[in-house]
């Protein structure tokens, strides 16, 4: 199978959906002429014109708000918030308008809006360009939260998000854009709300998502040599969580480590861990462990930045502890 980057996979998803449905259009800061801060929308302006690939002023609230207005009238806008760190600027639109409008209006409207954004540490950009804020979003009923880790999932999930009649926040990771992986030719969709077991194992389950999947797979490789068989579950969607896949894996391995890049306190892992307890507490042979980001603003210094998020080493160590 051909191998393409995560960036190319996303670009193909946008391109294919725009070609398929003229109601799909893109809007965001620096997405048109510049091609997006991370190059995801490159080339689309030339192909689809500035009506459908729209550079906006730096107005995050208006980007999301107008995306909602256009969605209510039958368009399928894909709006981009350049960094998830900027989501505070449009959180009212997202939380109070986008997420609630269908429910508040008694189901009499649909909001087929996709909000693409990107997060995570790794480029030593400091506290305003490195955050993982998915837990904020998981707390909002009415939206879906998708976080793909691989090129194949990035493409299939973005296409599904655009076709979904619900609002979807689609969170990419800045350190994944250049990663490569096999992506089939032609049309396919990856379902939202379905986790995938990326590595099968018997002794312990890692529940993870986004870039931490890559670290977790490397850790699993190392632990294999120590005689520990690790199952790695890529959650892919954080809202709604795939409770069934989580339950089945935990019932098989009886041990759980959650690997997440966001800050630990009230982070995504807290919800994931509680889900494990609700679903299959009786099957646990050891306490659930969270390997998570440090509860600090992301520091600039490269050594501190590395310390502030999980590493392959910290995952290996954490699992060894649980296996003791």
């Amino acid at each position: 199978m051909r191998e393409i980057t995560y960036r190319q996979a996303l670009n193909e998803a946008l391109d294919e959906e725009m070609a398929r449905d003229e109601k799909v259009f893109l809007m965001g800061e620096d997405i048109a002429i510049y091609g997006g801060a991370y190059g995801v929308t490159a080339g689309l302006l030339n192909k689809y014109g500035e009506d459908r690939v729209r550079d906006t002023p730096i107005s995050e609230a208006a980007i999301v708000g107008t995306g909602l207005g256009a969605a209510l009238l039958g368009y399928r806008p894909v709006v981009e918030i350049m960094y998830i760190d900027f989501i505070g600027l449009c959180m009212d639109q997202l939380n109070n308008q986008v997420a609630k409008i269908r429910y508040m209006f008694g189901g009499k409207c649909t909001v087929p809006l996709t909000i693409r954004t990107e997060g995570g540490a790794g480029r030593t950009l400091g506290a305003h360009h490195s955050q993982s804020l998915e837990a904020w979003l998981m707390h909002i009923p009415g939206i879906k939260v998708v976080m793909p880790a691989t090129p194949v999932d990035a493409k299939g999930l973005l296409k599904s998000s655009i076709r979904d009649n619900n609002p979807v926040v689609f969170i990419e990771h800045k350190m994944l854009y250049n990663t490569k992986g096999p992506v089939p030719d032609g049309e396919y969709l990856t379902p939202i709300g379905k986790a995938e077991i990326k590595r099968h194992g018997n002794d312990i389950t890692i529940l993870t998502y986004s870039r931490m999947l890559l670290f977790s797979l490397q850790a699993a490789e190392i632990l294999e040599k120590e005689g520990i068989s690790v199952e790695v579950v890529d959650l892919r969607t954080l809202l709604p969580l795939d409770r069934e896949t989580i339950r089945k894996s935990v019932m098989k391995t009886n041990r759980v480590v959650i690997v997440e890049e966001d800050t630990k306190t009230a982070g995504a892992g807290a919800e994931i861990g509680m889900t494990v307890i609700e679903e299959c507490f009786d099957y646990l042979d050891a306490p659930i462990k969270r390997i998570a980001g440090a509860d600090v603003p992301m520091p600039k210094a490269p050594n501190l930045e590395k310390l502030a998020i999980p590493s392959v080493e910290s995952i290996v160590e954490g699992i060894m502890e649980v296996m003791k």
Binding site: A61, A62, V64, G65, T66, G67, L68, G69, A70, A71, L72, L73, G74, Y75, P77, D92, Q93, N96, Q97, I101, M104, F105, K108, C109
Partner: peptide, 29 residues
Amino acid sequence: HLADLNKGNLGANGIVAGGLGIATGAALA
């Protein structure tokens, strides 16, 4: 939150200035 999309009323709003984005986006559409 009184709204009636069939009549062209895109909704009242509990947030002051909450309708600005919706109106402007509808106009874009």
